[in-house]
Structure formats: structure tokens, C-alpha cells
Design a protein around this nucleic acid. Structure first.
Lengths: 145, 145
DNA sequence: CTAGTTGCAAACATTTTGCCACTAG
DNA sequence: CTAGTGGCAAAATGTTTGCAACTAG
């Protein structure tokens, strides 16, 4: 999944707004821009730890909510998972294929997405859809062969 | 949202499998069959309490997981909510419209749902979708008028 | 210098477990 | 009678808050 922004662009735009470029911030943004898939706070901490940049969990959670409020990352909640996950907000709009056997997550971009369904919802219900969240569960290629 | 089963049918099928019809079980199944929308454990307890059938939260959680394992109810997780919600599993397959202004949830049945998308996922990715979960966010009729 | 950032401990919300008492059938 | 059920207290999990110390710019 390609992103429109890279690590430096994000950092310098935060700097322009008066926020600091710290070791933690650089590390976390680096992880998100380097890794397309939705990560939990715990996985993020694990990655930081293994890259010899360990931080307190409070701090990591605080940075996550900072980046979320600024619109750098967005929150995702998978069905039947208790943890929240995060991915870059600048990724192309997409959905997730979650394999029930190996738990791996794959990104997918739908051709004309749900435009038709959303039109029909506006017509039939008067409900103006501004956003949707769609998750597919099933068996991935590797697992059913 | 109509269901294929009513309270008595569910209870007697559980009885046939050797489970007991208790005050709690009857009350909880009654609430689910009487109320179409996804409920959290807390809301369920509140409804029980207000119907002079209060129960310990442990017990309520235990009954919820009992009913979930037996396939009577199913778990739902709304984006950005921390609580799990539950609704009757025998409801017709549907999705939810969540209003960002008043938080009300409306059910919706899509005409041919995501059949086309799921076919294209199988073709392009070799991923066999067995289930999906779709949630629309936006502004309901009452709120944008 | 000083507002933004960090760490620690402790709080919090939701859900789960262990254990023993109770009751439907 | 007895397997299934219920209640209490306490643990577990994931996340958040208060507060004092630290640091980037």
C-alpha cells in the first residue's frame, strides 16, 4: 500500500506547527511509514524495542493519540480483537482481508468501492454516508491450498 | 429488523440440548428478541435492572458468552467504541448506519450486498471471503435536516 | 528559557477467572 | 442428587491520567 507522504514530510509539517522532532516521534513515524499494515500499540512498542529505541508505554500511547489527533494516523478496530490498531492516514482508501486461519492481514482497494450502496442509502434512508469501514473475513490463498 | 426465531423457540432448543431455563437466561433472551439493536453488556444489565431482574455482572458476561458460543447471539464491534455489542444471530444479514451526530444506530439490508466485490477478491487475490463486516458512518435524516 | 515532551505509578474501563454456594430438572 | 448456574472478590487486559522531571529549539 503506497502512501502520499513519507517520514520527512510528516515530521517537517509537524515542526512547522511548532511541535518538536524527538527521538520517539521520529522512531514512531518511521515505523508507520515503513510498514503498511495496521499495528497495535503493543506491536509498535515491540518494534521500537527491537530497534534499540525503547520507550515507556504511556509515552507511546500518548504519541499515538497525538498523531491520531493531528490526522497523521488513523485508528482501526478489527472485529473480535480487543486491541486498537493504527495505520497511516495518508494511505490510499482501502479495506482489509483478514485470514481466519493464519490471521494475516492483506490490504485491498475496491474498484468503485461502495459508491453505489452509499447512493442507495441516501435515497432510501436519507442517511448521508461520510465514511465506511469494511472488513472481509475468510481464507487466504496460502491457507486454502 | 425481523428475526427468524422468537424467545420461546430459542429457550426450548437450549432445553433440548440439556441446558436449563433460568430466570437470567429467560430475561436476557427476552431482551435480545425484543430489541433489534446491538447492545453492550452494560446496556443489557441496565435493562435487566430496570425490569427488576438485576444480576451480577459476572453472570451476565457469562451468559453472553454462553449464548455467543451456542450461536444465539453474535458479537459486533463498532469502530471507536471500546465496548463489545451483541445482537441476535438469527437476524437477517444486515449492516449498520451509525450517525456521527446523535450516535443512533440504524439497520440496513443491502440489495445484493457485496457479492460482486467478494467475487472480484477471489479472482484477484485468491482470498475466499466467508464473512464481512461493514459499517457506515454519516449523518442521519433527522440530524441533517 | 519554556512549552512541549517523557517516565513512573496509579487509576480506569471492560472483561475474565477461581472458587464455592445454590438450584432446575 | 448433580450438572449446570450464580455471586463475590480478585485478576487480567488495554488504555488513560496526574504529576513532577527533562529537553528541543
Amino acid at each position: 500500500m503506497k502512501t502520499k507522504e513519507n517520514s520527512e514530510e510528516i515530521l517537517s509539517s509537524l515542526a512547522n506547527e511548532g511541535f518538536r522532532i524527538t527521538r520517539l516521534r521520529k522512531a514512531i513515524i518511521g515505523v508507520f511509514t515503513g510498514n503498511g499494515l495496521p499495528m497495535s500499540a503493543d506491536e509498535l512498542m515491540e518494534i521500537l524495542r527491537s530497534g534499540n529505541t525503547a520507550f515507556n508505554k504511556t509515552t507511546v500511547y500518548r504519541e499515538i493519540s497525538f498523531l491520531k489527533e493531528r490526522g497523521v494516523i488513523q485508528e482501526i478496530q478489527f472485529l473480535h480483537e480487543r486491541v486498537k490498531r493504527y495505520e497511516l492516514a495518508s494511505l490510499e482508501h482501502h479495506h482489509h482481508l483478514v485470514c481466519l486461519r493464519c490471521n494475516r492481514v492483506e490490504d485491498i482497494v475496491l474498484e468503485n468501492d461502495l459508491a453505489e450502496q452509499e447512493r442507495s442509502i441516501l435515497n432510501s434512508k436519507g442517511f448521508k454516508v461520510t465514511n465506511h469501514m469494511l472488513e472481509f473475513h475468510g481464507i487466504c490463498r496460502g491457507c486454502h491450498s
